[in-house]
Simulated scan of single mutants.
Amino acid sequence: MTIARRKSREVTIGNVRIGGDNPVVVQSMTNTDTRDVEQTVEQINSLAEAGCEIVRVAVLNDDAAWAIRPIKDQVTVPLVADIHFDHRLAVSALEAGVDALRINPGNIGGQKNVDKVVDAAKAHGSVIRVGVNGGSLERDLVEKYCGPTPEAMVESALRHVRMLEDRNFDNIKISLKSSSVTDTVTAYRLLGQQCEYPLHIGVTEAGTMLRGSVKSSVGIGILLWQGIGDTLRVSLTEDPVAEMAVAWEILRSLGLRFRGPEIISCPTCGRTEIDLISLAGEIERRLQNETQSFKVAVMGCVVNGPGEAREADIGIAGGRDKGIIFRHGEVIRTVKGGSNLLAAFNEELDKFLAERQGR
């Protein structure tokens, strides 16, 4: 089944087009001190290598704003400056070459300050992302809706958007984030019905690797399945690079985008006679930097393995005394002794990759 994407207008951040008919884009944020150019560049390049396509950086003061210029000179992905309260930092970041801003127009100090930021964004052809967080809504909206409800988040976002539209600025994308999966999904559904701006989706403060991956996968997955979302971030209390694997697996699971191999493996059972958990883990580590898209199967039973994983491009199934390596369900090699399985599979995997690269 093909997912029918929500209709949204197209905007361009650096060299990346989002919205419209463009694919969903993967985004993250550095956790370095932006003033430390060397460390920030290193993390941005690591993120890019892992599949990140837009990176946000925190701009807390003037030194951080002006550090964007030397950072931009050493990275290839577009940068978004995260700004709170101080409009001068937004203007400085734009002058330093940042590709987009993440702000709330209502908290940067009144009409004149909003005018200055909009004028600078127009002059530099930059996008403004209106970012609303359920934990920091305006007091009047919290009182009106008796809490940080999805309806309150949507009204806040549209209030901020109107401040930009009133200044003839519409190079906008919007995010509505909550730590609640259900509130996040409801808010984006409501907002998606009321505007055509591209939407950046994610569940904020989702948690550590396990819990954050689950909450993000559920929330982002529901939204994407309903056609909502033009950029996404998996927010984890973890090295930002770890977010990339989760983000791309979410996209792969819905058939939206593909990066790197898909690894399918059985959950083990009483018939399993090898250390399947370790074998699958070693193969996953072996392929973690591979960007080609193909399917690998790691099965614990030589009886049913090849048949159950017939769609795999290459796979392995192990037993106590032997294992088999197969392509598209056809056995290409039999391996004696369970301890030889990984080495033999790596040999066949090298041949397989070489053939793909040579075609």
Rank of each mutant, 00 (worst) to 15 (best):
L279F: 08
R162K: 15
V241L: 04
T268P: 09
G125A: 04
V302A: 06
Q27P: 06
M153Y: 09
I220F: 08
A4N: 14
R167S: 04
R69I: 00
A206R: 04
S175Q: 12
L287G: 09
E53S: 00
P198C: 05
L254T: 11
T186C: 13
L287F: 11
D275H: 11
D82C: 04
I277P: 02
R271M: 01
L158Q: 13
L164T: 10
V59P: 01
A4P: 02
G212T: 04
V98M: 03
N15E: 10
D313Y: 12
N168I: 00
K215V: 03
G134F: 01
L342P: 02
G260V: 04
D321A: 09
R5D: 03
E243M: 06
P150H: 05
Y145F: 15
N133G: 06
K215W: 10
S179T: 14
V185L: 05
R252T: 07
A343R: 10
N22C: 10
I274Y: 08
G14P: 12
K144V: 00
F294P: 01
L47F: 01
V127R: 02
Q43R: 01
G319S: 12
G337V: 09
V59M: 01
V127K: 10
L137N: 03
G300I: 03
E95Q: 15
N304G: 11
T34M: 03
N104Y: 09
E138D: 15
P105W: 02
D86K: 09
D230A: 00
R252C: 06
L199H: 10
R333N: 08
P70E: 11
S213F: 01
V24E: 08
T184W: 02
